[in-house]
């Protein structure tokens, strides 16, 4: 009985009004903390960490590159989850959250690609290489574009939500397939995932590690980007809900209610 009551309480936020009321209350917290975290992380990272002995000061772009790359992928995962929730439980807010998140994901992907190019130029001597990671991100970018374009193209909001959700599911499978295909196609220049490796965090791993000096400001940046993402998605979802409500009211007026 208590479990059922708990489950209910989660889905309460699927009600647009409840969602709006709650998100408006928590949004200021997310805006402020994300600004603080990103601010601290960037200032600490840019001005109070030593230059890398090999990479010089260019390494500091990591404070933008890594968080945005992480969010670009996590945003798609969030869209996948909310798409599934829409398909299974038919909560409109869930579909609208997916719609709201997509442009944020596009921007994150672009930031990751751009900072990667700027970092790659001095490091590898080229703005762009068909490295598996870079290529995968480019493909992810194309998936985002198609997803947003499909949302834009369809008038009926429920139809659009259904179609984009299924596209998101199918696209996820193909994105993973592409990732493996691209890896097979070209082993690349990009260093391995250096942040999340256990050895890198504990500092026991001496090769290509991100040492603690760099890691703590980076952690701030990552947390900040997560909070920023949540804030942006909540805010944009609220906008989508209001737009949807406006459409519904206009439609009522048309049918003469």
């Amino acid at each position: 009985m208590t479990i059922a009551a708990k489950a209910n309480s989660v889905w309460e936020y699927a009600n647009p009004k409840k969602f709006l009321a709650t998100s408006e209350r928590v949004l200021p917290f997310f805006w402020v903390t994300s600004a603080l975290c990103v601010g601290i992380g960037l200032i600490w990272g840019f001005f109070f960490t030593p230059d890398d002995y090999k990479q010089g000061s260019t390494v500091k772009i990591i404070y933008l590159h890594v968080p945005s790359a992480l969010m670009a992928i996590n945003c798609w995962l969030m869209m996948l989850a909310t798409s599934l929730i829409w398909l299974i439980r038919r909560h409109h807010v869930s579909a609208l959250a997916a719609r709201a998140a997509a442009p944020v994901g596009i921007v994150m992907t672009l930031i990751a690609l751009a900072t990667g190019a700027i970092w790659g130029q001095p490091m590898w001597g080229t703005w762009w290489a068909w490295d598996p990671r870079l290529t995968s991100f480019l493909i992810l970018f194309l998936f985002y574009l198609g997803y947003v374009a499909l949302w834009q193209a369809i008038d009926d909001p429920d139809t659009a939500a259904d179609l984009t959700s299924i596209l998101c599911l199918v696209g996820s499978v193909f994105a993973i397939l592409s990732r493996y295909a691209v890896n097979f196609w070209n082993q690349g220049l990009h260093q391995g995932a250096s942040v999340m490796r256990a050895g890198a965090i504990t500092g026991t791993d001496t090769e290509e590690k991100v040492s603690n000096v760099f890691f703590y400001p980076l952690l701030f940046c990552i947390i900040g980007f997560v909070l920023l993402f949540i804030a942006l998605v909540l805010y944009r979802t609220g906008t989508e809900i209001r737009a949807r409500r406006m459409r519904a009211l206009l439609a009522r007026e048309r049918v003469g209610g």
Binding site: L142, L145, G146, L150, G171, S178, A181
Partner: peptide, 15 residues
């Protein structure tokens, strides 16, 4: 739009 949606899905097969 069809091209935009389908082409990324073609990537693994093409590779």
């Amino acid at each position: 739009l069809l091209s935009l949606l389908v082409l990324p899905l073609y990537v693994p097969t093409l590779i």
